[in-house]
Simulated scan of single mutants.
Amino acid sequence: MAMGTCEMRPLESDIAPDAIVIGAMRAGTTSLYHLFRQSGQASVPESKETDFFLTPVNMEVGASWYSRQFGKSNLPKIDFCPNYTKRDVFPDTWRLIKKHAGNAKLVFVARDPVKRVVSQYKHSILFGEDLPSPSEWLDTKNAAHAINVSRYAYQMQPFFDHWDRDDILIVDFADMLKEPKSLVRVGQHVGISDPEALQTVELPSKNSAADLNALPNWWHRMRSTRLGHMVRQHAPRSLVENARNAIRSKSQKNVLPDFDASVIKSLQDQLSPDAEAFRKATNMRFEHWCV
């Protein structure tokens, strides 16, 4: 649907989010969501990924639905949706965010681009997708999309062009895991009252390969159905989490394929130019990346 068909007026200031975690997929956004949920210092949506600003069609659920996601709270409202930085599939998302939540602070979590692609491939298999071996997968449209998601300079360009740079925080996934101060910076950026307290809250391990592999295949298949989508949109988050915990197994059910050196080298060659552009745009070194 073209942008011109979106007649919805900009969200009122009391409904628009104060901050949005816009990505990247498979870079710890789910753990960050649960961290803020547990901290009690922010209001986060019942549907972890609302996808509200993804397309004009998504926004047709209405401002009332979006407002209910955050409940009645005076805490900073933080939305989470790594789909917002899938520009090759959803090119107008940044415009919708700018129109309806232009004052929101943005957070983008960047992970080693190659490791992020590998993680997305394995994530897709765990969710029941029938993918070929990594070497054969490289030539598919599915792989092209996964690689584009790891082109962070490309994904973030519209946000860099249309937001003040002080309103965009880039977080290194590796630092977020090992350096509590990085979580404090996120808390300061999104405006919570006591960001220093985030250092004392353990970052939850959510949606990791091990976590997903402990869930039965039927759970992953259901998640991709219309019913699963409705449950994620409307069921209380606590109910979904309790169900996940009840069916989780201690045994791992899937053996995930390894990426051999030639496949990794191909990914490095394809992602290196964008990684350098992202370093230049952010003035961050990302020394641990393999590109």
Results as ranks from 00 to 15, higher is better:
Ala2Ile: 06
Glu7Lys: 14
Glu12Met: 10
Glu12Pro: 10
Gly23Ser: 01
Met25His: 11
Leu32Phe: 00
Tyr33Cys: 02
Phe36Glu: 05
Gln38Gly: 09
Ser43Glu: 11
Pro45Trp: 04
Ser47Thr: 11
Thr50His: 08
Thr55Ile: 09
Glu60Val: 04
Ala63Gln: 05
Tyr66Glu: 06
Phe70Gln: 07
Gly71Cys: 08
Lys72Ser: 15
Pro76Asp: 11
Lys77Glu: 06
Asp79Glu: 14
Phe80His: 04
Cys81Trp: 14
Asn83Leu: 15
Lys86Asn: 02
Arg87Leu: 03
Asp92Leu: 12
Ile97Glu: 12
Lys99Arg: 13
His100Glu: 08
Val109Tyr: 02
Pro113Leu: 06
Val114Ile: 02
Arg116Lys: 03
Leu126Arg: 05
Gly128Gln: 01
Gly128Asn: 02
Asp130Asn: 00
Trp137Glu: 06
Leu138Ala: 07
Asn142Asp: 15
Ala146Cys: 14
Val149Leu: 07
Ser150Asp: 11
Tyr152Thr: 06
Ala153Arg: 08
Met156Asn: 04
Phe159Leu: 15
Trp163Pro: 14
Asp164Ile: 08
Ile168Gln: 14
Leu169His: 02
Val171Tyr: 03
Phe173Pro: 03
Lys178Met: 03
Gln188Val: 09
Val190Gln: 01
Ile192Lys: 00
Asp194Leu: 05
Pro195Cys: 13
Glu202Tyr: 00
Leu203Pro: 01
Asn207Lys: 02
Leu212Pro: 07
Leu212Gln: 12
Asn213Ile: 07
Met230Leu: 03
His234Trp: 04
Ala235Glu: 08
Pro236Asn: 10
Ser238His: 14
Leu239Gln: 15
Asn242Tyr: 13
Asn245Val: 08
Ser249Glu: 11
Lys250Met: 08
Lys250His: 11
Ser262His: 15
Val263Leu: 01
Pro273Tyr: 13
Glu276Asn: 15
Arg279Phe: 07
Ala281His: 08
Ala281Pro: 09
Met284Ala: 05
Arg285Gln: 13
Glu287Gly: 04
